[in-house]
Amino acid sequence: MNFLAKYFDEIELGERFVTRGRTVTETDIVQWCALTGDWYVLHTNAHYAEQTRFGQRIAPGLLIHAIAAGLGVPPDAPAIVANYGTDALRFVAPTFIGDTIRLKGEVIGKTDKRQGKDGVLKLNWNVYNQNDTLVLTSDLQILMSCRGRSN
């Protein structure tokens, strides 16, 4: 079970989860570029990308971070109040069109904000491809309610 479906005060340090896989497509990249206006040539120009060290187009790192949120954050999590921030975000390997990524999350810290009401959960938030290669690493923080509190 994904621990983000629980309340802040029910979650323990060291809890982990792994999500299902999701394949990154050319459509994902084109839609991301259209939405953000980021048409960088390494993501959108096949001929250019063939001449680089990667040999092909790569997905924008922030797209991979966004897909990780979609994989890891339950759509109906009762206790999530807000995304509190991301620290140490690194894109450590390329994600190519056709790669299947999954998220591995682990609770690495808990900070009470208002005793008994809410707190910040700090997560090791890592994305791996189908070869178990780490492609993105970060520490994600989420503001969450304690049981009995509403968002």
Score class of each variant (00 low, 15 high):
64 I>K: 04
69 A>M: 10
124 N>F: 15
123 L>Q: 08
113 K>T: 05
125 W>V: 07
78 P>H: 09
26 E>Y: 04
23 T>F: 06
119 G>K: 00
15 E>N: 14
89 L>K: 10
3 F>N: 10
26 E>I: 06
43 H>E: 04
142 I>C: 03
145 S>V: 07
11 I>M: 01
149 R>C: 07
134 L>E: 14
128 Y>P: 03
28 D>W: 05
18 V>W: 06
5 A>P: 00
104 K>D: 10
130 Q>F: 09
145 S>T: 11
54 F>M: 05
35 L>K: 12
90 R>V: 11
67 I>M: 11
128 Y>V: 06
40 Y>D: 09
8 F>Q: 11
48 Y>D: 09
111 T>I: 08
116 G>A: 04
92 V>T: 14
43 H>A: 02
96 F>R: 08
117 K>S: 06
61 G>R: 00
63 L>W: 00
100 T>N: 03
6 K>H: 07
131 N>F: 14
112 D>E: 12
29 I>H: 08
67 I>E: 02
101 I>A: 09
38 D>T: 08
98 G>E: 02
114 R>E: 11
122 K>P: 10
82 A>P: 01
18 V>E: 11
61 G>C: 06
145 S>G: 05
38 D>H: 07
46 A>Y: 12
73 V>F: 15
28 D>H: 05
106 E>C: 13
139 D>A: 09
70 G>K: 06
99 D>N: 07
98 G>H: 12
33 C>F: 01
150 S>Y: 09
46 A>G: 13
137 T>V: 14
86 T>Q: 11
110 K>I: 07
41 V>R: 10
34 A>V: 04
31 Q>Y: 12
25 T>Y: 13
117 K>F: 01
